[in-house]
Amino acid sequence: MRYAQLRAFHHVALAGGFSRAAELLKQTQPSVSDQVRRLEEAHDVLLFDRSGRRVRMTEAGEGLFNLTKSFFEVEEGIAAYLDRNRAAVTGRLRIVADSAVHVTGAIGRFRVAYPKVAISLWSGNTEDVLSRLRSYDAEVGVVGNTGHAPDLDQMDLGLSPIVAIAAHGLIPGEPKTIAFQDIVRWPLVIREPGSRTRARLEAAAAEAGVTLSPVIEVEGREAMREIVASGAGLGFVSEAELGHDPRLRKIAIIGGELMMAETVVSLRARRDVPVIRAFWGALT
Rank of each mutant, 00 (worst) to 15 (best):
A166D: 00
S195G: 13
A179L: 10
R132F: 14
A138C: 04
I171C: 06
V129A: 08
I165S: 00
A167I: 06
A164N: 07
D156R: 14
E207K: 13
P161N: 13
I165V: 14
A138K: 01
P150S: 15
P175I: 08
Q154H: 02
I171S: 05
L133R: 03
V189Q: 04
P150E: 12
L201T: 07
I183Q: 04
E192Y: 04
S195C: 15
H148V: 13
E207W: 04
L130C: 07
V184N: 03
L130M: 11
T146W: 00
I171W: 05
A167Q: 12
E207L: 10
P187L: 07
T146C: 08
R196H: 07
V129C: 15
A203P: 00
L152M: 14
I178S: 04
A205G: 03
P172S: 15
G194P: 02
A149V: 10
I165P: 01
Q154M: 14
L170E: 05
R132G: 04
V184H: 04
V189P: 02
A149H: 14
N145E: 07
A206L: 06
Q181Y: 05
R185M: 10
I183H: 04
R196G: 08
P193K: 11
A203S: 13
L157I: 10
R198S: 06
I165T: 09
N145G: 08
R132Y: 11
S160D: 02
L188K: 05
V163T: 02
F180N: 03
R196C: 01
A164E: 05
R132E: 15
G194N: 03
K176G: 11
G194F: 03
E139H: 15
I190Y: 01
P172R: 11
R200M: 13
G173N: 10
V140C: 04
G141S: 07
E174K: 06
P161I: 09
R134D: 02
Q181H: 13
K176P: 00
T146V: 13
L201G: 09
P175A: 07
L170C: 08
V163D: 00
L133P: 00
G169D: 15
E174Q: 15
P150Q: 08
M155E: 13
L133H: 03
D156L: 08
E207N: 12
H148G: 00
V163W: 02
A164S: 14
V142T: 06
Y136N: 08
R196F: 02
R198E: 10
L188V: 10
V143C: 08
P187T: 05
G173M: 12
V142N: 05
A179M: 06
D151V: 07
A179H: 10
L159A: 03
G141A: 09
T197C: 09
L152S: 02
W186Y: 14
V140G: 03
R191V: 00
G144W: 09
T177G: 02
V140N: 00
I183P: 01
G169E: 11
P161Q: 10
L159V: 04
V163E: 00
P150M: 09
A149D: 14
S195P: 14
